[in-house]
Design a protein around this nucleic acid. Structure first.
Lengths: 183, 183, 183, 183
DNA sequence: AATGAATGAGTTTTCATTCAT
DNA sequence: AATGAATGAAAACTCATTCAT
């Protein structure tokens, strides 16, 4: 095949990346072999290495996309966007994405590169919060509330997201509304 | 074949488990080879397999101990102890423990057995909270606040734990309901 | 499919062979991948296979050209030209040529075809020597003196070629038999 | 198997090294796969890597032994030892060793480590010659005469080693004997 | 009880070659 | 004529596990 257009190249890359993401979400980064990705994607082993320099490179690409998706979901209204993000965590359609997230966290422990990416996933919202005038520590707590929800959702399919959201909203009321509100 | 007393057996087991925990915290379960554990522990490969049926078995033992430690720390008074638990997360001396925790979370995705253990780490506190009359969703949020702190501490050594605790306390004030307490 | 004149075909072939020779001299036949040659030559992988049936074929072509060059250099007067040939070995400009030669020697061990070519590089001078009335074994020794010089020059850039030549001349004096010449 | 004695370890190493040397002499370093060595030696792939860090390491070990053998053969009397070395080159029993030598020369072109080893194979005799009062360039020429003989022997099984030796002795006569000897 | 040599299937990665365009 | 995307077999190397001693 001769030089193909960029759309084709992008589609190929997608094909591989989607297969990799599916495998990674299922089995984790290190239990997934390149052969698994080859099988899942339907392309040859050689081609995988034309698009990615190795498994590490694929992991990094997956992580980058995962972060982008999250930040995009946050949108411009930090508070409203935040509750949307929380709700999306509980959506069974996004289960694979959450599973991927946990793998990213584990990988961030041993890979400097991925730690930087994971950290940026916290720092970017923190900067948004700062612009919105929220205390940094509050931003951290809110992010933690999201991170813990990801874990708990994966462990308990019946987690009651609405109650969870209500508690969060309740706790946030003194913060989001005028501070004078007495209880 | 000399017969050895139980204390010796227990000590050997400890020696291996401690080495394994150190390796796992450093590199994760799957990037740690049995040889790594052999090196770190100083015992032979053969002996490792007299104490554990395989790597999976060692992971399970490590996870079980980690879980026990967590639940023990929770102690008798969950409300009073909670902020202390959070503070202990930020203690650099406990860093390996937190790193191990993240690995456990990742492993819970693919192992039913470990998922059950990880889940119990959430369910036990929830039961305690229920006994104390706290809403279940609030218990979940508090656990999330702990989980997220673990992650963020590992990513940012300079995380300001005191500010974090203050925000948590502040958010909880309307809930802990000693409304008169002025600071 | 545009038809192209022979000059174009020859130029293309040259382009590929020159790139291959450069790679082979640098890394040896087997450490050079076809992709290396593709990169060095600037043509596509597909085109390489229109000019050569495969890597082995390229090696054979390179060896053939190298052999031709060697025999050509020998020229018409082997005796007079010999010392010049030795001198040219030490010329840094010919370094790639010498490196290629060593690769050819190594390849001659496993390829009957290349062994025949390499052998002819010895036999042709031997025949010339015979015509000139030189003993066959002397011809062999002279060729050895050249072969060893190739190796030693590649290992030691500071090799003193003039001393080397003087020794050779000195040793040959009783043989070249113009005994009266009192230098 | 428990800790075995050093003789066993040394024998194992020999077993692997001999197999490797046989493969290398037959097919060259780069045409020999680790699997080939595994097959030839009869040990498992894993064991090969307990004794050698990789293929490069095995090549280096082979080269070192090859050099040692040659220097040992040279003995203490440079001139007499030298003619012995030449004679041994033509001995069919040593054919594999000569083939190996040519591979070493080729490898010396791309590997700094092996180049250093190959160079030492020239420098050590040169130092011996210096001690014996022989001019350095003469030592070089003599080494070249040996190197070329290795190549020519491999290309021509019928090479007449006695004539070759006679020519060498003849050429050396003015050097080895008292300079006054008139032919 | 303890060792560590040995295994071999599995891993990631490379590479000569083909062929649709 | 020329491209370069695609293949898949084979390469080097690793690793959990076993077992003779």
């Amino acid at each position: 095949m001769p030089k193909v257009d960029d759309a084709h190249l992008a589609a190929r890359r997608r094909q591989i990346l989607d297969a990799a993401a599916a495998c990674f979400a299922r089995e984790g980064f290190h239990r997934t072999s390149v052969q698994d990705i080859v099988r899942e994607s339907g392309v040859s082993a050689g081609l995988v290495y034309r698009y990615f320099s190795g498994k590490e490179d694929m992991i990094a690409a997956i992580v980058a996309e995962w972060q982008e998706r999250r930040l995009a979901r946050l949108g411009d209204d930090p508070i409203a966007g935040y509750l949307d993000v929380l709700r999306s965590v509980a959506d069974p359609a996004n289960r694979a994405e959450q599973r991927l997230g946990v793998q990213v966290w584990a990988e961030s422990i041993r890979s400097e590169r991925i730690r930087a990416q994971a950290r940026e996933g916290v720092d970017a919202p923190r900067r948004l919060a700062e612009e919105a005038g929220l205390p940094d520590a509050l931003a951290r707590v809110l992010i933690a509330v999201w991170q813990g929800l990801v874990l708990q959702t994966l462990w308990d399919e019946d987690l009651d997201i609405e109650s969870y959201l209500q508690v969060v909203e309740h706790l946030l009321r003194p913060v989001t509304q005028t501070p004078a509100t007495d209880d």
